[in-house]
């Protein structure tokens, strides 16, 4: 970034004008730093005030008995809340449900997202139309889509349900929740992957084709390896987002028949139970789970933490 080439010792041979310019340059650098920090200050302040402080506060609450129904009994109880939550089958069922939806969701989204990305990237007719309509699921409020799926699968009412009531059983409900999640997020996945597809040089594919590689071979041996960074970033984004699943479950089943996710039980503890201690414990555990997932992705799979590509 610096354009200065003159060594500092040359001050006497250096023309007056250059010296002044350099003086200005370093003044400018200082001003630039100040301006940069000043411009970022409000955004950073808000982001930290609304996330860092509450999460520290949640950690403190999680070490206390803090039940709004019995305010007199509040006291410091160490890790008791963690023992309560981690030894409760409710937490582990919700954790299992969340992992089921996260892992299968990410897998389906990756495959279908790739298919959609290829269609959007390669189709020879109506490309604009396809790209435009693929954005529809993204644009729809999750709750609205969830209601659409719920009504569609409601007995008698829905065109998909017929005489069955799939939303009253655990596994059938989970598959419908998965469907709703996947439907909504495949386009986003596809857009991220399409940006990766655009980076695969056409010449390379052409050359491989001349050397006799089949479409399938070109896809696995050229496209996929070149897209690996894009795939990992997309997967990281989606996995972390999927782990927070809440809206679809709330509307589709309200968590009935053991279909609660960890976010659902966190919410129920706060609004239904008004138990801030337990609710905060769940919050901290979710926060830790997300941190662990991100760590695994970045350290083990070598996903470039998004933003590491900044300023390349």
């Amino acid at each position: 970034m610096t354009t200065q080439t003159l060594p500092p010792g040359d001050a006497e041979v250096e023309p007056e004008g250059v010296r002044i310019a350099r003086q200005r340059h370093s003044d400018g650098q200082k001003a630039e730093r100040r301006l940069g920090l000043l411009l970022c200050a409000p955004a950073v302040f808000i982001m930290l005030a609304v996330t860092a402080y509450p999460i520290v506060y949640a950690f403190w609450l999680s070490l206390n008995r803090a039940d709004l129904r019995t305010p007199d009994a509040n006291e410091f109880i160490g890790l008791d809340n963690y023992v309560t939550v981690l030894s409760s089958p409710i937490w582990w069922t919700a954790f299992g449900v969340t992992m089921f939806l996260t892992v299968l969701g990410a897998a389906f989204e990756l495959v279908l997202g790739m298919v959609l990305a290829i269609v959007m990237h390669r189709t020879i007719i109506g490309r604009g139309l396809v790209r435009t309509s693929a954005l529809v699921p993204y644009a729809i409020v999750t709750v609205v889509a969830a209601f659409s799926w719920r009504f569609a699968w409601t007995q008698d009412l829905g065109w998909l349900a017929g005489d069955n009531a799939p939303l009253t059983g655990m596994w059938s409900s989970l598959w419908i929740i998965l469907l709703a999640e996947v439907w909504k997020t495949v386009p986003f996945m596809a857009l991220l992957l399409m940006a990766g597809l655009a980076l695969v040089p056409e010449d390379l594919l052409k050359a491989a084709s001349m050397d006799g590689a089949s479409t399938w071979q070109r896809f696995w041996k050229i496209t996929i390896p070149l897209m690996k960074p894009a795939i990992l970033v997309a997967l990281l984004f989606r996995t972390l987002d999927a782990f927070r699943v809440f809206d679809n479950i709330f509307v589709l089943t309200s968590g009935a028949n053991n279909t609660s996710s960890v976010s659902m039980i966190g919410y129920n503890n706060l609004i239904g139970g008004l138990n801030l201690g337990i609710g905060s414990t769940i919050s901290v555990l979710i926060f830790l789970s997300i941190a662990i997932i991100a760590f695994i992705f970045i350290k083990l799979f070598g996903a470039a933490a998004p933003g590491e590509g900044e300023k390349r």
């Binding site: 996330t51 509450p54 999460i55 987002d241 927070r244 706060l270 801030l276 919050s283 997300i290």
Partner: peptide
């Protein structure tokens, strides 16, 4: 990527 639910209780 922050889990919003983790903030719900303290923000409340």
């Amino acid at each position: 990527m922050f889990p919003q639910i983790a903030l719900v209780t303290p923000l409340f």
